[in-house]
Design a protein around this nucleic acid. Structure first.
Lengths: 155, 155
DNA sequence: TAGAAATCATACCAAATTGGTCATTTTAAA
DNA sequence: TTTAAAATGACCAATTTGGTATGATTTCTA
């Protein structure tokens, strides 16, 4: 199953919690309660997000975390890459062309590149501000009809 | 780092090797040599692909594997999902709405859905036949100079 | 101004997934 | 009947992931 790591998933969720009240300073403990994620794990993730420049931390009494920039300037890719590292579907796409003495499959590189870009676009096309707006009850049926348009870069 | 599993990566590569000579029956050992992947691993992956209906197996002497359908009827998604399971970026997207008694983040589901679909589209938009076309004789040296732009976004 | 409380930060440990190996059985062609 | 090949299942190692505990830092308050 292709999925994000739990930590990346958590990270997006925590960012959403913070973005809902952008003015407030949110403590790890408070966010842990709100999101039902173990406190130490929250701590670790928030620390990562601070180092990535997505959050600002305020130490000391009444300290906590707040967004480093407006929610519409933060994309899902930013959050995910901060936690999970870059989107790089295949080893082929790394810096070293590595062991590409393989026959028969290097025409695939340009295709892989396309696919990888498309995935990044998909992730990058949604901003944090969008994640928290408009919560239609989407469970069930047609609520998702006006959706994508994404993945248009291909073809 | 967001990446496919090695097995999925290998699977695509093996499928490419087979698709290059669609008439032939390819033995595990031959493919292992060709792709530089350990034989037992090749065996395991090919078995999975057979069960997924992407390959046909021929037992006995001079047996081996061949495509179960034309290369332009097989998408990368087919191969990847056969090995890694469905593309399901977040737990939220699974069948059971699970612990979505979480506050504040369920508006995110419809967004996650969009993102997930886009990723699937990206993977599904490339067919096996495209992966193997235009394979310039790249073995050797500068043959891959015109190859794109790769790893440009990575930094 | 000093101490204490609240909080961030980091180093450490355990468990689960993944990747890879081996040995056995089944099949079919020569 | 012998041989070469696939199919199957159990097994082991290692990386990664998730979680825990402890330590360091800042600010408030007395």
């Amino acid at each position: 199953m292709i999925k994000l790591s739990n930590l990346a998933d958590y990270a997006v969720e925590l960012m959403c919690c913070i973005a809902l009240k952008p003015q407030d300073v949110h403590s790890s403990a408070g966010l842990s309660d709100l999101a039902h994620i173990p406190l130490p794990t929250v701590s670790k993730i928030l620390g990562t997000l601070v180092r990535a420049g997505l959050l600002a931390s305020h130490r000391g009494l009444n300290g906590g975390f707040s967004l480093a920039r407006p929610a519409d300037k933060i994309s899902i890719t930013h959050i995910i890459e901060a936690v999970d590292g870059p989107v790089q579907l295949t080893n082929c796409l790394g810096e070293e062309a590595s062991d590409c003495d393989r026959e028969s499959n290097c025409g695939t590189r340009s295709q892989w590149y396309r696919i990888n870009e498309a995935v990044k676009d998909a992730l990058g096309s949604v901003r944090l501000s969008q994640m928290i707006e408009s919560v239609p009850d989407f469970i069930g049926d047609g609520a998702m009809d006006d959706l994508p348009l994404i993945a248009k870069t291909l073809n």
